[in-house]
Design a protein around this nucleic acid. Structure first.
Lengths: 147, 147
DNA sequence: AAAATGTAATTGTATATACAAATAAATATT
DNA sequence: AATATTTATTTGTATATACAATTACATTTT
């Protein structure tokens, strides 16, 4: 006669979310600390990188890539435009507000690179090599499944 | 003569943070969607589980386990107390405000279990088996390194 | 014992996030 | 062509998060 396992034991032992969220908090803290002297956060750096990479990109495509709600991106872009790091360019479809990185944004990116290097190395050490591969394949699966 | 690789290419190809944050957003969406009928979020469920597991726990210990800032936990607990899911019990050290799950909180936990099961299965499928192991060992490393 | 230091938690303020609703413009339907 | 539907983005509102400062209490130092 064994007593049933309490719900909290099962969830604590198996929950993916709690582990993912812990790692997310720790990593965000490390990147944000490193980036603080640049005035940018890791969330904003990821948006800046996506924009620089795609040259000229609609908010909706950044949302798709980063799996971010459009309203979240909108507020982040608002702050980044206020800093002069991003700008909006006209589009044939007048609903669209394509984004482009500004020269000031490019300079910020160059200045932030060493801070990113340091944070990346620190988080890599904390998470272990297998974690990058796991996250990368998870992201690929997410992007494939959203077709 | 090869041109240098642009900063945005390097960061996009290697950044742990962007991958972690994408997976975090997707997983949070799935758990929160599943839990919505219960009135609880996955962040709150994780706090409820930690409290139930430890019977009677100081906020500072929950913060340590979940790697959450004390002010963040304070606001979350505030909401959960307003719902009647958690309560504060007295402590010898009068600075401390130990937490305990209420009977209402226990009933919520039981009611939320099937929703958690469904979300957990869905996220497991999306992230793949190797991801749980990677995250779990990362969390263990984080907890060990914070001694 | 008084003063200084340390610790636990909360409060002020800001960013990050998402859902729901609104707005504006393009496309499809009748 | 007028109406309906869809699409792109923003705005309203709420939770999640953290840093800095504050409050209240405990411990250590003098």
């Amino acid at each position: 006669m064994s007593s049933p396992i309490p719900i909290e034991d099962t969830i604590a032992q198996e929950c993916l979310a709690v582990r993912l969220r812990i790692v997310h908090r720790v990593a965000t803290r490390i990147y944000d600390d490193a980036l603080r002297p640049t005035g940018m956060t890791i969330s904003q750096l990821n948006i800046l990188v996506a924009t620089a990479l795609l040259k000229r990109v609609r908010p909706a495509e950044v949302c798709e890539r980063l799996q971010m709600d459009a309203s979240t991106l909108s507020r982040n872009v608002e702050r980044m435009k206020a800093h002069g790091w991003l700008e909006t360019v006209p589009d044939e479809d007048r609903r669209a507000q394509p984004l482009r990185i500004t020269p000031k944004g490019r300079r910020l990116l160059a200045r932030a690179k060493p801070a990113w290097d340091a944070a990346q190395a620190q988080v890599q050490g904390l998470l272990g090599a297998e974690t990058f591969a796991a996250l990368d394949s998870a992201v690929r699966r997410i992007h494939r499944s959203e077709i």
